[in-house]
């Protein structure tokens, strides 16, 4: 094998990489926050919500969990404009990530809610709380705490999955790598660099999630 790895392009293209990293971080920040909120809503609907809401939410969750993210993205970006819903590539990428994380988050959070002891609901009722108040003030936080590690992993998975948004020309880290390899013909090196950055980002996102976990559930010791 006579091939010499060549990273001499790195300084010149560092700004492109940095821009890509920022877009990837923005995508996971927006997608993560809104996705978890959507997941909480759907988990509530599936576990405790009114009956008429359970079926449509269940359908949504099953549809998203059993189709590839790439197809969801293509459907939103290429498919929806033909029924008059048009958006730019970043909005489409964000929307796809929120919808995707919402479905996975729903099942994870639901498991947390269903592990709540029955007495907690009864205690809430005996304090004259409405079901929604019980959910908000009694059930939700311990439920989230229970499944926080699983939810953190899912956020990392969605972040890594976001590398396909370059396929609809959203200019994330993978887009930057594709751009660099098409300019320098150093494909292997460009992807090695971006892979390492993704690995660092995954560790970073995991740390941030752990930090959020520590602030959200301060007094309880993690089991």
């Amino acid at each position: 094998m006579k091939y010499h790895l060549d990273f001499s392009w790195l300084p010149q293209y560092a700004p492109d990489i940095l821009k890509g990293v920022m877009i990837t971080l923005e995508l996971i920040a927006v997608g993560g926050v809104l996705g978890i909120l959507l997941g909480i809503f759907c988990a509530w609907a599936r576990a405790l919500g009114p009956r008429w809401l359970k079926a449509p939410v269940g359908l949504y969750v099953e549809l998203i969990r059993n189709t590839p993210f790439l197809i969801q993205l293509f459907f939103i970006f290429f498919g929806l404009p033909s029924i008059g819903v048009q958006m730019n590539e970043l909005t489409a990428a964000n929307l796809a990530m929120v919808i995707n994380l919402g479905a996975y988050g729903c099942e994870i959070i639901r498991a947390g809610i269903q592990a709540t002891p029955k007495g907690q609901f009864e205690a809430g009722r005996s304090l004259a709380m409405s079901p929604l108040q019980t959910f908000r003030h009694v059930v939700l936080v311990p439920s989230l705490q229970r499944i926080w590690p699983a939810l953190s992993s899912q956020v990392v998975i969605v972040m890594l999955g976001s590398s396909v948004v370059s396929q609809i020309a959203a200019q994330d880290l993978t887009f930057a790598a594709n751009f660099i390899q098409s300019r320098t013909f150093r494909a292997f090196e460009a992807y090695i660099v971006s892979t390492i950055i993704y690995l660092v980002l995954a560790i970073l996102v995991r740390q941030v999630m752990a930090l959020i976990g520590r602030t959200l559930f301060p007094r309880r010791k993690a089991a």
């Binding site: 890594l160 590398s163 993978t174 790598a177 494909a187 993704y198």
Partner: peptide, 16 residues
Amino acid sequence: GTPLLMQMFLAFFGLG
């Protein structure tokens, strides 16, 4: 900890 897409690119260009 790395995207599957990156692994595919690396396999594709790495084997090359």
